[in-house]
Design a protein around this nucleic acid. Sequence first.
DNA 1: CACGAGACCTGTTCGC
DNA 2: TGCGAACAGGTCTCGT
Length: 273
Amino acid sequence: MPELPEVETIARNLREGNSQVPSVMGMRVTGAEVFWTRTIAQPDSKAFVTLVRGQEIRGVSRRAKYLVFELSEDYMLVHLRMSGDLILCPAGESCANHVRMRLQLDRDWQLDFNNPRKFGRVWLLEDPADLFSSLGPEPFDPTLTPEGFFASLSRRKRQIKPLLLDQGFIAGMGNIYTDEALNLAKIHPLTRADELDQEQADLLLESIRRVLNDGIRRNGASIDWVYQGGDFQNYFRVYQRTGEPCPDCGTPVERIVVGQRGTHLCPQCQTLG
DNA sequence: CACGAGACCTGTTCGC
DNA sequence: TGCGAACAGGTCTCGT
């Protein structure tokens, strides 16, 4: 589930609460359990448990696809990777089947890191800067202008889809929103980045922002068993819609493989120059 | 630098 | 029904 809109939704729900759960702001960590040791990337899991205890949650935000917990002493960063989710669950209850790490909180809540495929990771750091140093700009950063975006594209010879998935080029895009944005912008995923003109770059940046915004507005996308919450999956244009009509021209959507990722496109709208 | 393949993991779905 | 293959929202590392 976790691309920018899903991570943003999780951060917002934890920060602000919703009809089901309260905000975690001001809650204190009274203990931690690690059920899959490799979940903790830094420090080691034993040190993590010791260090995190007693810290108060003072902020929850997002950078790229990382959840950023500002604690009283450190920052806790969580990357959900392919199948992770964070669930605020009443203390002592079982809200998920694959919990790899749990923070016990006061006020009778616990924060469960559910993660069936065990790819997700957690860091506890004094300063998150090193983790973030190689990340590209946030898509909504106002200093990311159409002109600057075009200039960045012009310097790259990679295919546009793998480039958009590269978190060092632009942060937060994943397989869903990349396919959606490229279809909206009518750009073939194999197009070389330096072959796009200014007009296409403008449209691509606008499309990226539009699909991400739509995703956020719908609380993200919920595909299959991994995640419940959003309903953006009902508004996909091409992602996992192989054989269904392109929303613009009606041509059946095709599936190809690009960089080992399933890729969905309209062969009529998105052609190679 | 660009690219492809393989790793890391478990669960679901599809085809025979 | 059963069983293996294919596939899944991500990222890292290695070889060419």
